[in-house]
Write a protein that binds this DNA or RNA. Structure first.
Lengths: 337, 337
DNA sequence: ATGAAAGCGCTAACAG
DNA sequence: CTGTTAGCGCTTTCAT
């Protein structure tokens, strides 16, 4: 079933059928209706490849996220899907597991498939990787804080300040022995969180022993491993701030294993505000990241970039607000729900 | 940068370059090396569309799953990705949210993009949908129990028996007022679970009041809503079995809200054994589904099907074993970790 | 408003 | 072993 067959049955040329599909306004109403009804009737679908071969528009965007087992990214992805599908675009989802090499491979796949645009979430790509993508005429939007410092259009929150706020709250609860557990990835974001954390403690003249900064894989298991290390210290921390909720869950698991009660023996604050944070016992205090909205704004921004090609120089950056959710786990009194 | 340019520089015809790429064994070693190095050097990538246009092989498989916020499906997806990428295949992930209409749309997209095969997880598609896919020459493997009864190659567990076992355990713990909360989707799987559940209670001559079977969206919120309904009954259940862990999490939330203690006031058994089940307080008893392995086996089966086209008549079905994990939430003594 | 025809970049007969 | 060439199905000038 191809365009030729439709053209034959409709008694018009293939060009006309093609026009009906691509520039319907340039076809006589009567012809158009006729062709359209035939297309419908015969269930004709234009061949994707033939189309892509000479139009180079695929109505597809690529979405690169670090990890599907982190609900935070899934929330973002949902926001993206929502907007993309509303515009008739398909989303190609790639999972990088924080591995730049794998990320490059995925980028290649997406470029091969000629996505019209790409959304990079907390990417580990370097500036020249980004450059190579743009060179191919593919629009890019960054979501979260990425590795390079190429000033592509971005949607993010201020991770550093958010982390500082979390730390300040812990300080205000009276804790002084505060450790931070952070994930290997996403690298840049976590570095910013560390800076914020350190800044807050410095402001309060609280020292951070080197062993209080521990890095593990950004997973539940990583969090548990980090916590175990901290627990074994000669002077273990009284509070822990983690760069993600996933890590915090791991800390909770390790605490339970070792008979520590949260928040009595150990205060805890996470980052992201994934749904399960509220389900834990005690409920996990955390920094609420507007995940879905980051996806939505990012996608809208991407469409803008894709539309005004000449306008690509306008370097847009959207910084959304995060909010500390104070619940049970940090021991400071449950204030926000 | 196209094949012609490479051919020109290499001083060979386009056919030779194409052969180097597709049937390297039919090219003289020297020529091949030379062309290959040029390809490498110039960073040439064959045009995806031109290629797809006449080869109809895309080295891509489609994976259709109901929900990314259910870690159970993500685990499966990881298994799939693992095998597919090992074979050099790309996986296109589609999320159907249990909506058959959306699922059909995704199937269409996947067919447009000429995936070589499709993996349908707990699909809501009917037999003739499946037929239409196969008609297009696309291989299919079903993972989980799907709607139609077309006997496509399948990887699944015996949901009915697993549910019966869970119920039997609850009975053996002495509970008689046992309710079941099940999700709207995946429909067939949940129907089977209900049957198993009913069978077990019948075997023990325990009656199930109609109000003890409650259906909600297969989400945490759905579970909470269902639990609230059950709690309001004049004679509320003493134990609840849910068709998914997600639902069980919701039940736990509702129990906490209403001051019910698990397992003292309410016993609970879930289904899937997602990672968080172990993190809950109390730890959630549940039916362990071999999620990752289902993805792996499904994908391997798909590759088999894709390879022996004539062999498609061999109706293969792999039934994996599930296992009841007895933890704290069902109150029967923590036996398995 | 419509049709004829020239590609898009690649693969696979077919011939040599 | 290699080159020539005819498509794959569609879009898009360029005429008419």
């Amino acid at each position: 079933m191809n365009i030729k067959e439709i053209a034959g049955r409709a008694g018009v040329s293939v060009a006309t059928v093609s026009r009906v599909l691509n520039h319907p306004e340039h076809v006589a109403e009567k012809t158009r209706e006729h062709v359209l009804s035939l297309i419908e009737e015969m269930g004709y679908k234009p061949n994707w490849f033939a189309r892509g071969l000479n139009s180079n528009r695929t109505y597809t965007i690529g979405l690169m996220i670090p990890n599907l087992l982190n609900p935070a990214y899934v929330e973002m992805a949902k926001g993206v899907e929502e907007i993309a599908s509303k515009r008739g675009y398909t989303t190609l989802l790639c999972v990088t597991v924080g591995d730049p090499q794998k990320e490059r491979k995925h980028v290649q796949t997406l470029m091969d498939r000629r996505v019209d645009g790409m959304l990079l979430v907390s990417s580990a790509l370097e500036d020249d990787d980004i450059f190579r993508i743009k060179e191919r005429g593919i629009s890019i939007v960054l979501v979260g804080e990425n590795k390079g410092n190429s000033k592509e259009p971005t949607v993010r929150i201020d991770c550093g300040e958010a982390a500082a706020n979390a730390a300040r709250h812990l300080l205000s609860c009276g804790y002084r022995e505060i450790a931070m557990v952070y994930g290997k990835s996403p690298e840049t974001e976590n570095q910013n969180k560390i800076c914020g954390f350190q800044r807050a403690l410095q402001e309060a003249s609280v020292a951070i022993p080197e062993e209080y900064l521990v890095c593990e894989k950004n997973t539940i298991e990583g969090g548990a491993a980090a916590a175990r290390k901290l627990f074994e210290l000669s002077s273990p921390p009284r509070a822990i701030f983690t760069s993600s909720d996933l890590l915090a869950l791991g800390v909770m698991e390790a605490a339970r294993e070792t008979g520590r009660s949260i928040p009595k023996d150990l205060a805890l604050v996470g980052f992201d505000n994934i749904r399960i944070a509220e389900l834990m016992e005690p409920r996990l205090s955390t920094v609420a990241k507007p995940l879905r909205r980051m996806g939505i704004y990012g996608t809208k921004l991407l469409f803008n970039v894709m539309e005004n090609i000449d306008d690509a120089s306008k370097k847009r950056e959207i910084v959304l607000k995060s909010k500390l959710k104070i619940r049970k786990s940090c021991g400071g009194g449950e204030k926000t729900p």
